[in-house]
């Protein structure tokens, strides 16, 4: 599928090519969805650390449910929210494997809150990629625990009213209070500089696992242009101007 008609002229060397741990399958995400960037960064991290042959990924329920199609790694599909428990089972069964879960905010911060908090609190030696786009994307744009106050979703048609639906859940801040986790950070991918920072964070989160440092979680504040009903470029702007107000970027916990 990636066969291209354009031939690279002589005298050029590759600067950027598709990561080897990705398959040929096209991503199933909507145009401009940050999931695509984040999925790619995970693959780049796996490539750079040379861990493809011992990595097991855990696909969530949600927009990333097709993740196993995209990677050339062993993969398991978990029940909604249970990825951290499944990761615990795999890692405990075979500590030589590098185990990562990839979860959205509905999966990780609503239905899977308990599994996430307790895996973090046990300091499970796993890597968690947490995509916070403030909405349930796959099911059609319902309110997520991370939905911003006043934000319109199909289940908050007048905007999220904090008096009846509560406030955006800052999962990373919660987890950073625990003694168990090794690394909790919040990143974004709305521009190249932040993409590079996010990649560094993902690499660190995997490296921690390789070094046996315990639970690492990289939250990435992302845009879902489809459900925001904006263009992908405006989605980037949304992250900067709206989402980051509630979800400030940076490391929340780094244990060395």
């Amino acid at each position: 599928m990636s066969v291209t008609e354009v031939k690279v002229p002589a005298g050029y060397v590759p600067v950027y090519t598709k990561p080897k741990s990705l398959s040929e399958a096209r991503f199933t995400y909507c145009p401009g969805c940050h999931h695509g960037i984040i999925t790619r960064l995970v693959a780049e991290a796996i490539d750079e650390l040379g861990i493809q042959e011992r990595t097991v990924g855990i696909a969530p329920v949600g927009c990333a449910v097709f993740l196993s199609d995209f990677f050339r790694c062993d993969f398991v599909q978990a029940a909604h929210g249970r990825a951290c428990a499944v990761a615990t089972g795999i890692k405990r069964a075979n500590p030589d494997l590098i185990v990562f879960s990839y979860q959205g905010d509905g999966d990780l911060a609503a239905i899977g809150t308990a599994e996430t908090v307790h895996a973090a609190n046990r300091g499970e030696n796993i890597t968690v990629i947490f995509v916070n786009n403030q909405i349930y994307g796959m099911t059609g744009g319902e309110m997520a625990p991370t939905t911003l106050p006043g934000m319109r979703t199909v289940t908050t048609p007048e905007g999220r009213d904090v008096r009846t639906t509560g406030y955006p859940l800052r999962m990373s801040e919660m987890l950073a209070q625990l003694d168990g986790p090794s690394y909790i950070t919040r990143q974004a991918v709305f521009d190249v500089r932040h993409v590079q920072m996010a990649k560094k964070a993902i690499i660190k989160a995997f490296k921690n696992q390789i070094e046996g440092k315990g639970f690492s979680l990289v939250e990435i504040v992302a845009a879902c242009p489809t459900n925001l009903r904006v263009s992908p470029v405006e989605g980037n702007k949304w992250v900067v101007e709206q989402a980051l107000k509630y979800f400030p970027l940076g490391d929340l916990k780094v244990r060395d």
């Binding site: 097991v56 855990i58 398991v76 978990a78 029940a79 249970r82 428990a85 499944v86 990761a87 615990t88 089972g89 795999i90 890692k91 405990r92 069964a93 075979n94 494997l97 308990a114 599994e115 908090v117 307790h118």
Partner: peptide, 26 residues
């Protein structure tokens, strides 16, 4: 072997799911 007291029955069975997927008798 691994003995782990989970935070819930839901977590416990999903840990079983993970360990079973890794090929271990669980």
């Amino acid at each position: 072997g691994v003995f782990l007291q989970a935070e819930s029955e839901v977590a416990a069975i999903n840990m079983v799911y993970g360990a079973a997927a890794a090929g271990v008798r669980t």
